[in-house]
């Protein structure tokens, strides 16, 4: 989005500097909207996004009409819910932490275990899940069809589909909105553009550690600070197979998706089970040898950081903050 010659020069400098050559990962950077793989190879119509936003906030999407997507993915809580484990519409605890939604437009697989191959697949999952919104789509479609504002909004958003309200257009609208939740103007991005004052000295030291001896960049790399991969990092009791429940293999057991770190200070608590409350504690998880070692990723090697270095890393993660402000729509 924001491209100028400063970025180019800095990018070239980073690419060819000897320090950068120490690393062999996709470089950190600002996300490029040209890299988004849209289902139809182009951004959705604004009418689709607007409809998706309204649906995202509508409690009609849950069986008891008490829960919307935004209940758990609360924009004011970093598109999370602040809980360690998510909540279902009946107040029941779920098995994993509610993931944030920042910059999912660049993501590859969705949910902690990657069981959804597209945002469209993901969008319908929690709606239908018995323990979450518990809404049968066969009941939801007529519920929406009874709302004149939705009939009109679907007609505007999906003219090629004759305004049909079905699971495909429903998913396309919600996913279309979610792809607009883009965070790309953090202090780190401004620093990359050439503003040397955009990040504090602590954050700059943290960046060097992030790319260097802390080895964070092994997994948290690329413009969204994620390899979009799945790794067993020894969190929890090892009973949740994670990716291993979706895809067999030695590399998938107990592995969970690497979350992107943009706006990470807003998305506590952390890890797939929400068991870690602060970013400082997250870093200490990697410094202290994990207690759960079964199928541990080979990337989980020993690192040594002192207390000041840990705080520098946290400062760098703070420099990844660019909140996405969402004004809740008027739900019909």
């Amino acid at each position: 989005m924001k491209r100028n010659w400063c970025t180019l020069i800095l990018g070239i400098g980073l690419t060819f500097s000897p320090a950068w050559l120490l690393f062999a990962q996709p470089p950190l950077g600002t996300p490029d909207v040209d890299d988004i793989e849209y289902p139809d190879d182009e951004p959705p119509d604004p009418a689709v996004v607007s409809l998706g936003k309204t649906l995202f906030f509508d409690t009609r999407l849950s069986k008891n009409q008490k829960m919307s997507c935004a209940t758990c993915h609360n924009p004011d809580l970093g598109f999370g819910d602040g809980f360690g484990l998510g909540l279902g519409s009946e107040g029941n605890r779920l098995g994993r932490n509610t993931p944030h939604l920042y910059n999912l437009a660049w993501n590859v697989l969705f949910f902690w275990d990657g069981r959804a191959a597209s945002l469209e697949d993901q969008a319908l999952g929690p709606i239908e899940a018995e323990g979450e919104m518990n809404m049968n789509l066969d009941d939801l479609i007529p519920r929406l069809q009874k709302v004149p504002e939705y009939v009109e909004a679907f007609r505007k958003a999906f003219p090629a589909e004759q305004g049909r309200i079905d699971k495909h257009t429903l998913a396309a609208a919600i996913a279309g909105f979610e792809r607009t939740l883009i965070s790309d103007d953090s202090p780190f991005d401004r620093y990359l553009e050439g503003d040397a004052q955009a990040m504090s000295e602590e954050a700059k030291r943290g960046l060097a550690l992030f790319k260097g001896k802390a080895k964070c960049i092994n997994c948290h790399n690329g413009p969204n600070l994620t390899d979009n991969g799945f790794h067993n990092i020894g969190v929890g009791d090892g009973k949740d197979p994670g990716r291993g429940s979706i895809l067999a293999g030695v590399t998938t057991q107990g592995a969970f998706k690497t979350p992107g770190l943009r706006n990470v200070v807003l998305t506590a608590p952390y890890m797939h089970d929400g068991s870690v409350g602060s970013l400082e504690a997250v870093v200490r998880h990697y410094v202290d040898a994990p207690k759960q070692k079964k199928n541990l990723s080979p990337l989980m090697v020993a690192i040594e950081l002192d207390d000041f270095e840990i705080l520098d890393l946290v400062a760098f993660m703070g420099a990844l903050t660019d909140p996405v402000e969402i004004k809740p729509p008027v739900v019909p």
Partner: peptide, 11 residues
């Protein structure tokens, strides 16, 4: 033509 991938890094 068969797609191959890496289970650790799906991208």
């Amino acid at each position: 033509v068969v797609q191959v991938g890496c289970k650790i890094h799906p991208k």
